[in-house]
Nucleic acid binder design. Structure first.
Lengths: 200, 200, 200, 200
DNA sequence: GATGAATGAGCATTCATTCAT
DNA sequence: CATGAATGAATGCTCATTCAT
């Protein structure tokens, strides 16, 4: 029985990997299910055993990749022993940007969907005690003194969108400037925004 | 044969209008060229006389709409007689957001493409003396005292991306909060970013 | 191992019941073997242990239902103590029509196959002494004085086809008229046909 | 322009003819649209230019064939100069049965759909003054003295269903007897039914 | 320039059937 | 006996593109 279960897992894994590779090279619209199964070496029907359609596998892929990305960054943050909340936030951002810089493919795929919603779902997903988990996540990112800020949710939302959106073309096209040139401006802006949310 | 020329213009216009309506209601991928020509009352072959394919007409449409949006905002700004650069920038942002709030369709279509590149092209497009035009545009937006800032291009880029990206789901889905609630945070952040770019 | 035997019987039964329900609601062509086994809670392979394919199970189902229908009508006839052959024939027809009226589903499934062949097979099926059984069946339906008629087989055939065919749309669509309005014409015609087959 | 129109007609005709041949040999369910276009020597897309799907072309085919069948029989009847309504009715029935006898294919295709509805639509189809046309049709079939009968519609319905249903297996399978043996019984029954509908 | 009939590659999806467990 | 994962042929249908008129 374990053997069958193992085999199933393997098939699904192979489909996910193949799909990821094709999505990142040819793009989602140009990739057909036929492409995926042919490259994965499984029968067409098998695809439908595991996924509803192309968008189903794409979403599962995004969630999986985003989750991995965030968890890695958070683990590094834990080991970094930073105390200043601005430093901590920028540490996370910097780590994620560096990961994207290393593999443009991943960024191209996660694309413009690089939003707060994605990350939230990737980390919390369907939890019962949603608010408590959110607070914990914020605390894990910023440190323990959350009471210095107002509207933490709006602040995080704004920063994630700002970073995600602005770095897309910076990383992929070096437009309007290379990432290294852009980082100082970005990080200075993040600090400014964080400060503007602080309770007076 | 001004009549013929007129007729040509009219056909193209009808195609653009129809395409816009279909793109905003059915979405780009779900709209076929057949849909467009049928609704426009034009023969299929005629489409190819004016556009290369679906994406060609979509891009021309985005450029046209974005241009209109910006020009309107700039004209209102000219009449508003504001002097503070932060006020001026926020006036523009506010006007554009209000326009999008009025017609969600337009925002849904321009989609995540709501980026600095779009606006830049919409306003300057293929000019020879690119840098001079940019400087003039900045001056038109911020006022005459540009020398107080460094890296104006980075600043504008960052702000446009931040606004565009964060307001997309705020306007269309009221997520994570309605536009009216979000605006104060956004404008406060814009001011903070603008300040952080000022020469010390 | 009566238990195993029982279990087998139960599985087959469950497949038959499920298939009937699906055939009558979704129609034969729209029902797949996957549908049947899923709804029956049986593995796909199991289906092939008992039936050759979809049409095999459908035929077995028709035979089974038609048989049940006829036997019920015949038993009621036995208890009705009618003597006139016309009365007896119409009693049977009326009972069957009423059963169909009650459950349109059944009629819709047996469909246009509601023919003499079906009923014959349902009642006699693969008997060795076919002719003697037929005579007995006729005698059971019409009474003992069969010698008054010629070509009994043709007569029964004609009447069954006439009733089955004409009542299909009458019962299911009330077209060209409702069953209650149609019955007098039908029964009058049956009597006329019966009479026309009598030996002069 | 005439040339294009002609070509279109020709294509549609070729599709109809090919479909008819395949439907009658392989059966409707076993015939795919690919089969049809391959045999017709046209592209797949062309099929959808003229028909919605397989059932659309089948229905158009049935209507067309049934219409042709009836019109032929009616024309012959006009030339036959029969006066007795029973004779006239049987003349029509006989002619149609003979046509089916000649080309089993046609009967196999029209199949169990050989009903009053088909013929009614084939002859009257979407007319405004439906009732008047029906009366005229009845008069054309039975002669001028329609007032001798009650419930003409029920009578015609019953007879068409009886003939269609009973002759299907008689012609195609010679079961339960060959057509020539069956005809006397059928015609005697028709006369009996017709008589039973006469006003007393 | 304008038309629209014709094309046919391409796609998603279904499903009967098999067979190793 | 029973299972259900895997198969892959088959099908209906779409649609961008061409080209003769």
């Amino acid at each position: 029985m374990g053997k069958v279960e193992e085999n199933k897992q393997q098939k699904q894994e192979r489909l996910l990997d193949t799909a990821f590779q094709l999505f990142t090279t040819k793009g989602l619209t140009k990739t057909s299910i036929s492409d995926i199964v042919n490259n994965a070496g499984v029968a067409k029907g098998t695809f439908y055993l595991y996924f509803k359609d192309k968008y189903d596998i794409a979403n599962k892929l995004i969630a999986r990749k985003a989750r991995h990305l965030c968890l890695q960054a958070l683990e590094k943050l834990d080991r970094a022993e930073l105390t200043d909340p601005g430093d901590r936030l920028i540490f996370i951002v910097d780590d994620i940007l560096n990961q994207f810089q290393k593999t443009h493919m991943l960024l191209r795929f996660i694309n413009k969907n690089l939003s707060w919603g994605i990350f939230k779902n990737a980390l919390i997903r369907g939890s019962e005690d949603h608010d408590r988990e959110m607070a914990e996540l914020f605390r894990r990112i910023l440190g323990d003194d959350l009471e210095h800020w107002e509207h933490l949710d709006a602040m995080i939302y704004l920063i994630v969108e700002m970073v995600g959106s602005s770095c897309y073309s910076v990383i992929l096209e070096r437009d309007p400037m290379p990432l290294e040139d852009f980082k100082p401006h970005l990080y200075r802006s993040i600090r400014a925004v964080v400060k503007s949310f602080q309770k007076s």
